[in-house]
Design a protein around this nucleic acid. Structure first.
Lengths: 313, 313
DNA sequence: AAGGATTTTCTGTCCTAGACACTATTAGGA
DNA sequence: TCCTAATAGTGTCTAGGACAGAAAATCCTT
């Protein structure tokens, strides 16, 4: 057993700490000469802490759209400079009617002011009411926070803190709604790889506010299990939330897969930021372009089923 | 673009759907002759849907402690038989004083009765009060549900549903507590790879009930970011929850890593099912053997800091 | 005979190095 | 100026071998 904490770690640890896959780490080493791990007595890669730190920095700059070749070649100082630069070009917040709640949120996040942020969210919820809180505040705020994160203005821990507190508020709001039983019956979740809860929660709230019967499975449900749950719960609609973290291609493949496993009478509704740039809906899928459109979609669903009832329950 | 939904999928998809790593899939093919994918025109593996289904079944039997060699060789029928067998040996619930709430929960989960389960959890919370709800119901219930899942009695979607509803109740409970400001200041989260929220939430509630200042970052915070957040939030204690999903060895390595990145004045408290079989605490870490012990641990912390104040705030 | 230590079997991860699909960028043409 | 074609750039896939670490089986001791 080691007495001193080892400053050198294996490739799995680096993968976990940086988010760069083992394959990527090996191919960078071969191609660019960095990272340059030592080897342990078994010939396995062993990365010094310093290189892991640089890789973490590179990984986070990659998230901002920079390319690997220059980043990997750059020195630690250059990387820090680039990081600072990308923070400097902070886009001015959209000159919305009342941007104060947004700025307050970002400010309190910047200050790591948990108590202040919590009370700010709570007050905003009470002031606006759940529906307006979601449509006018939570949804655009999520975009702004995601944006600030990808620009490097916010750290991972700040983004986590925001998600946690916002989730708390949304659940508080949902908890006050008396559960409805109107059609359609909706099963909500996200596909594997999509771990953002907030989209599901906002949709849940909007649906519950319409009195719809709504079952949420949280995040990352395997496709086969979604299909099974939809059958067992007698769902009319499977609602899925997609953030921009997922690749469009992967999402389409999974949706096609799910579509094939569900009976045609069960609709699939897909929403979230991923579809912002999508031009047309994938076959057999309904895109919910905005949370605001949920009541309209529900009305359309009822009209469809009313005139052409496909299933008898 | 394909017109028909392809019944054959690539190795990445199989990895996502079954949870078996690409490496494992390849080595099984080489060693046991199963799976036996066809190849596309580029020589890449392409798995028929039937084999993916069998792999999924195998993967879930693996979670129950069965070994790969026999499973991979077995026919689909044998696998189903094994699945049924492992469900049959359902351990009798511990003859606790009042096991009715546990049985009701499992029954409603089995029936996919979302509304009934939700009201059952809510009523139990109101009846017992938050603290007793957690100690006497939620914590042992989590174990039972995890158990039932690993025996195959519950499907993935049922386990997800349970987590989601229990999470909802816990957050409702936490939301009613007026936030405190007592020492120590605790930062709560889980390490990468640990995605179970409930442990963090139960700890959060227990700490908040003691009036402790408590910041939660949700799940899966990278180690470096935990250390950063602890500094910025001025945390005295970093509290981490571990389910049995994580391997003990991985957890120990990550804890050692985190310990090295935190100043010695910041304590690390680790709790959760993973430590049930651990005999002694890792160096520099405090094991919280049970949620019940939290008040005691808080008292001890205050005694330590009271007699030997290490930090000046 | 039961418990504990040792050996053997099993199983997943890591290795190298090449190929290639896919995406982003640049160059060319309408 | 916008759209299309060529060109880098980049990550994932493949092969079979090696081996560390976990589980199971055996042996030995009490």
């Amino acid at each position: 057993m080691n007495i001193t904490a080892s400053p050198e770690v294996g490739i799995s640890t680096v993968e976990r700490e940086t988010g760069l896959s083992k394959d990527t780490l090996r191919v960078w080493e071969r191609r660019y000469g960095f990272p340059e791990p030592r080897r342990n007595r078994h010939g396995e890669r062993v990365y010094p802490a310093e290189q892991v730190g640089k890789l973490r920095l590179i990984s986070r700059l990659l998230d901002r759209g920079l390319r690997p070749r220059q980043l990997v070649a750059a020195s630690l100082e250059e990387l820090m400079a680039r990081m600072a630069a990308s923070q400097a070009v902070a886009a001015p917040p959209g000159a919305a009617a009342d941007s104060a709640p947004f700025e307050t949120t970002l400010q309190r996040l910047a200050d790591y002011d948990e108590a202040g942020l919590r009370s700010h969210l709570s007050l905003t919820l009470q002031r606006l009411g759940l529906l307006r809180f979601i449509l006018e505040f939570a949804a655009p705020m999520n975009v702004q926070v995601g944006d600030a994160w990808s620009r490097g203005v916010l750290a991972v821990s700040q983004e986590h803190l925001y998600s946690e507190l916002m989730q708390h508020q949304l659940r508080q709001g949902i908890g006050t709604i008396y559960p409805g039983a109107r059609t359609p019956s909706v099963l909500l979740t996200t596909l594997p790889g999509e771990e953002h809860q907030l989209g599901v929660l906002m949709a849940h709230a909007c649906l519950a506010l319409e009195g719809v019967r709504c079952v949420s499975l949280g995040v990352q449900t395997p496709i086969w299990d979604i299909a099974q749950a939809a059958r067992r719960h007698g769902a009319d609609v499977v609602g899925l939330s997609f953030s921009e973290a997922l690749r469009l291609k992967t999402a389409l493949a999974m949706l096609q897969d799910l579509r094939a496993q569900l009976p045609p009478s069960v609709e699939i509704w897909a929403g979230g930021g991923l579809w912002a740039h999508a031009h047309h809906a994938p076959p057999g899928i309904r895109l919910i372009s905005h949370l605001e459109r949920i009541p309209h979609e529900l009305a359309e669903f009822r009209a469809r089923r009313g005139t052409a009832p496909t299933v008898a329950v």
